[in-house]
Every structure is written in C-alpha cells, then in structure tokens.
C-alpha cells in the first residue's frame, strides 16, 4: 500500500464499534479516505487522500429511519456541524461520518450516555428480529422440523431409489448429487433455529456493550 491506488478490504467487527473505528483510522493514516462500506459483506473501500490539513477521522453512529426526509434531516445536521455522511442507508443502521472541517468537534458524541445509546439501538434491532422469528421457530418445532432422530437416521434423508445398493462411481455421483437436497430436507429447521440463536446472541452482546459504555 503506497497511498496511490484504491484499495478494498474485507473485515467483520461483530458490534465492536470502537475497534472498527480504530481499524479504519489505521488505514486512513496510511494516506487514505474511506469511500464506502457494505456492512452485509464486510467490504470497505478506500481511496487515496492528499492535501488535507487535518486527519479525516471516521466515526460511526447506529440509527435506522422510517422516512426519507427524517434521514435527510439527520444527515443535514451532521453536515452543518462539519461531519460528512460517507456510508450508510436509511434502514441499514450503521452510519459512517467523516470529519470534514478542521474546526469540527473531535467526536460525533459529546457525552458518555449518548455514545452508549448506540448499543441500545443495536440491541433493539437484534432483539426485535429475535422476537419476530421466535414464534416462527416454535411453529417449526411443532411441525416436527427439529427432529433429532435425523442425526442418527440421516440415511433416510436420501430418497433416490436403491441409492445405498449402488457401488463405485455410480454411487458417488448419485450420492453427491442428492446431498444438498438431503441437507435441506433434514437440517433447514436447525439452520433457522441457529439464526434465531445468533439474533439473541448479538442482542445480548450489544446490551452488554451498552451497560459497559454507560458506566
């Protein structure tokens, strides 16, 4: 990296906003500016940065909006006070701001409480998703989607007639062909359950950060 070409990096931070801000800053200090972030794939795009008389710090807020004009109003407030919106969508949550004036404040938060509130909003999002999907997974369970016997009788998930009597290349071809379908048949319920568990895990982790930062 010599600060003359665009670079892209992939990284996930799993809710640790401070670590993310520090990492972004470490790239910026090598002569770059943050151009965009795609939180879904963890992709960060940086462009070379020259001729700036101050460090273009990145700070991250977390907020979702119902209406576009409220999102605009939010961005306008930051712009007015010297922070440009670099990346983030109306409903995506993570909002990245770049310091655009040397005279702008050091941070986008001026007290501990509001800095911690970010984590509360993150927790609300994950726990909200959890509350939506939990009843669904209960319905799945009632319909027998979580049948632990499938782990033992996994052979029954394969429906090709006479599959287990086949030999050699013929067997492997039929076996490998059906494996994705068999997996879907047997374990999609468990996969769904796993996702729901992730939601509650992220929610609780964000709450933990909230109380830790508030102190």
């Amino acid at each position: 990296m010599d600060g003359s070409r665009n670079i892209k990096k992939y990284k996930f931070f799993f809710l640790d906003i401070q670590k993310e801000e520090k990492w972004i800053l470490s790239i910026i200090r090598q002569g770059y500016r943050l151009a965009s972030v795609r939180t879904g794939t963890g992709r960060y795009d940086f462009v070379p940065c020259h001729f700036m008389d101050f460090e273009p710090v990145i700070k991250i807020d977390f907020r979702t909006f119902r209406k576009s004009d409220e999102f605009e109003n939010y961005i306008a407030l930051f712009e007015d006070s010297g922070w440009n919106h670099v990346s983030g969508t109306k409903t995506g949550g993570a909002q990245y701001f770049e310091k655009a004036r040397a005279t702008a404040s050091e941070d986008i938060f001026s007290d501990k409480a509001s800095r911690a509130e970010r984590y509360k909003r993150i927790a609300n999002m994950w726990l909200g998703l959890f509350c939506v999907y939990l009843p669904l997974s209960a319905v799945f369970s009632k319909n027998g989607l979580y049948n632990f016997n499938t782990f033992i009788n996994w052979k029954e998930l394969y429906l090709t007639p006479g599959l287990w009597e086949m030999t050699g290349i013929r067997f492997w071809r039929a076996f490998l062909f059906e494996t994705p379908f068999a997996f879907g048949r047997g374990f999609s319920g468990f996969l769904f359950f796993l996702i729901v568990i992730f939601y509650v895990f992220f929610g609780i982790k964000a709450l933990y950060w909230y109380y830790k930062e508030k102190k």
């Binding site: 407030l77 007290d111 509001s114 509130e117």
Partner: peptide, 28 residues
C-alpha cells in the same frame, strides 16, 4: 430553529462552555 441552530445557540448561551456534538444533539 433547526438542529444546527440549537448547537450554536447553546454554545453562545453557555459562553462556549457547552458544545453538543451532532450525534448527541440528534439523540436529544
């Protein structure tokens, strides 16, 4: 007044002692 007006006004009222940053202001 709008958000940024409030930020400036508060700074003026407090003789520069209270400076509310944008994120904190929006939350408030």
């Amino acid at each position: 007044g709008h958000g940024y007006y409030i930020m400036q006004k508060v700074e003026e009222l407090s003789s520069g002692k209270v400076r509310i940053a944008a994120g904190t202001m929006y939350g408030a």
